[in-house]
């Protein structure tokens, strides 16, 4: 997934998880990254971090773009056209995981997706 504008950080050893979870998680990352491409501004870079906490996998997607203004997400959600946020939240919720979204104007956007992998990974 790494490109000149996307940096990927991960352990040297493979992170194992059920196939369904892996597919959903990678779809969620792709959605978050395409959102960066569309909304973060032309100069934005993105970083993906994959962590294996043993029993839980954490995927973080951060960009240094324009960020999302306070309340902007809620407005979009109310208007019913917040495809990305909803889609990512839905995918992760289906896996029994949680989503944190941190953003502020000028501060970029940071997703943290926590997904249980069941027992020791």
């Amino acid at each position: 997934m790494a490109t000149p504008t996307i940096s990927v950080a991960a352990p040297a050893t493979p992170v194992l998880m059920p196939q369904v979870a892996a597919a959903e998680l990678s779809a969620a990352v792709r959605e978050a990254l395409s959102n960066v491409e569309r909304h973060a501004g032309p100069a934005a870079r993105a970083w993906v971090l994959l962590e294996d906490l043993g029993g839980e996998v954490v995927l973080s997607i951060r960009d240094d773009g324009v960020g999302i203004a306070d309340g902007r997400l809620a407005i979009a959600e109310a208007e019913g056209h917040l495809g990305v946020s909803q889609s990512i939240r839905g995918r992760i919720a289906d896996l029994g995981g949680t989503v944190e979204l941190v953003t502020a104007p000028g501060e970029g956007t940071e997703w943290e997706l926590h997904v249980p992998t069941g027992g020791q990974a």
Binding site: A9, A10, P11, A12, T13, L53
Partner: peptide, 9 residues
């Protein structure tokens, strides 16, 4: 990311 992963491993 590699160093984090190594400590956890």
């Amino acid at each position: 990311g590699l160093v984090l992963g190594e400590y956890r491993r």
